[in-house]
Structures are given as structure tokens and as C-alpha cells.
């Protein structure tokens, strides 16, 4: 059986990793390649690097950093932030990225998903969906979770899959940074509905949250940042514990 994946997420600003709390207030955490290598050695299953400044400052993506990452680590990694064309995606593929994630640009131009998927395959494109629950409706957010897009989580995720998304990375904006656990009931619905793997993000605070997101939330992978970067939850300890709880992880 395919293993449940643990994915540390590294937010990158000006070539350095940072961790955002509710996407604002940044704190510097170190070199992206060094951190990636460390996590790979610790047993992380994949990594995500997000160029967080890209979507609103119009900055290009971080191609030279991507090559350094691809040379330095031996597990798959996804890059996101500021990818607004198939050419952007192509440049990142050539630099060694295994997958790209698109968010705001796909909301503004959904055809981008079809283009990237048909050119490079669905396995290469992750559609990141940030959503905030308001009055019982999961409102999709754009530009780093700051502005409402006129879309709803379930219908947008379904459309993204039908356009060729290979995975959906769902971040609950309301849970992100709270450390109170993932949005499990919503994740469970989403994962049951979609034909592709769902990566859960937002809300990891302790080890049992990870067990819950896999069992109750039916997530295929769980992404977190601060609990890993701070050293509070070492990846090997987490995976060993999940294994003891009957969660199918790679150790």
C-alpha cells in the first residue's frame, strides 16, 4: 500500500527559509538546501518549497535555488510561488523540480492547469487551494490567503482535477498557524470526492493531529512547517509514533 506522506514545507523569501504565522509576520529560519537535506536524512517523504513573496511582488521564481536543491537532496520536491505560465513551469522542470504548485495564477487563469498538465503530465502539477470557512461555506482565497476568490473549495478542487491537477494541496487558512489540528472533516469530504491524492495543510500542532489527519481526514499526505522547523516534532519520532498507531508510513 502506498504510504502516507510527511511533507515539511519551507517558505522561501530572498533565498532564505522563513515560517509565516497565518501567512504574515515572518521569522527567518535558514538555508533552504541545508534544511532540505536535513529533512531528507530525517525521513521526510517529500518537500515543498514556496517562494512566498512571488505572488504579490511579481518576483520571478527562484530557478538557481531550485537547481541547488535538486542537486543536494535525494527525495522529491515541489516548488511553488509566482508560476503563471507553462514556460515558468518548464524552466522549473529543467532546473530539477519534480512538481510545481500553482495557486493564485490558476484561479485567475484556470486554463494554466490544462496547459501544464498536457505538456508535462498531471504528476507534475499540484494545485494549491487556500480556503477559509465562512458561514458554512469554504471560500477559496488567493494571493497568499489574503483575498477572497469567487470560488468554493469543493467545486474549484473538482474543476482543478478535471483540468489535470495531479494532486490537491488544501490549506485551511483558518487553521493555519493555530496549532489546533487540521480541518479533518472537510479534508475527509474532499479526499473522498477527488480522484487524486490530497495533501493536508494548516493546523499541525502535535503528533496526534497527524494521526487524525490520516485516519479521520483521509489525507494522503500532511504538510507542516513550524512544528518541524522549531524541532518540536522531529520527523523520525513522528513517523515512528504514527507507525505505532497503525498509520501506514515509511520508516
Amino acid at each position: 500500500m502506498v504510504r502516507k506522506r510527511i511533507i515539511p514545507c519551507l517558505d522561501v523569501l530572498d533565498g532564505k527559509t522563513v515560517k509565516g504565522v497565518n501567512f504574515i509576520n515572518l521569522r527567518e529560519m535558514g538555508d533552504p538546501v541545508e534544511m532540505g537535506r536535513y529533512y531528507a536524512e530525517q525521513g521526510a517523504d517529500e518537500l515543498v518549497y514556496l517562494d512566498i513573496s512571488a505572488s504579490y511582488e511579481g518576483r520571478g521564481t527562484f530557478r538557481s535555488l531550485v537547481s541547488r536543491i535538486a542537486k543536494g537532496i535525494n527525495i522529491p520536491f515541489t516548488v511553488g510561488g509566482g508560476i503563471s505560465s507553462a514556460d515558468d513551469a518548464s524552466a522549473l522542470l529543467d532546473s530539477g523540480a519534480d512538481k510545481v504548485s500553482v495557486n493564485t495564477s490558476a484561479l485567475e487563469n484556470p486554463d494554466l492547469i490544462d496547459k501544464i498538465a498536457s505538456k508535462f503530465g498531471s504528476q507534475f502539477i499540484v494545485v494549491a487551494v487556500d480556503a477559509l470557512e465562512r458561514d458554512g461555506l469554504w471560500q477559496v482565497m488567493k494571493k497568499g490567503g489574503r483575498y477572497a476568490a469567487n470560488r468554493e473549495l469543493f467545486e474549484w478542487s473538482e474543476e482543478a482535477c478535471s483540468r489535470g491537477a495531479g494532486e490537491i494541496l488544501f490549506t485551511s487558512v483558518g487553521h493555519d498557524g493555530t496549532r489546533g489540528g487540521f480541518a479533518c472533516s472537510t479534508l475527509s469530504l474532499l479526499s473522498s470526492m477527488l480522484p487524486v491524492p490530497v495533501i493536508a495543510s494548516g493546523g499541525a500542532g502535535n503528533m496526534s493531529h497527524f494521526a487524525q489527519v490520516f485516519s479521520d481526514g483521509k489525507a494522503d499526505a500532511a504538510l507542516a512547517a513550524s512544528v518541524f522547523h522549531s524541532g518540536e516534532i522531529p520527523v523520525p519520532v513522528l513517523k515512528k509514533w504514527l507507525d505505532s498507531q497503525g498509520i501506514n508510513v515509511r520508516i
Binding site: V2, R3, S122, G166, V196, P197, D220, R250
Partner: peptide, 30 residues
């Protein structure tokens, strides 16, 4: 779910490619 994406184990392992690789070891598939 398809594509089969992520780490999965290999079983019935034999042959020279797998010298030093344990039965049930995980590898990355897409």
C-alpha cells in the same frame, strides 16, 4: 488513487539491482 504517487514497498525482491536492499523497502513511484 491514480496516479500511484508516493512511497510504496517492493516485495519478492531479488537480483543484482537489489543487493543490500531489504525485503519490503520503500521507493518513490509516480
Amino acid at each position: 488513487k491514480i496516479p500511484h504517487m508516493g512511497w510504496n514497498s517492493i516485495n519478492g525482491v531479488k537480483g543484482s539491482l537489489f543487493e543490500g536492499i531489504k525485503e519490503g523497502e520503500c521507493f518513490y513511484f509516480v
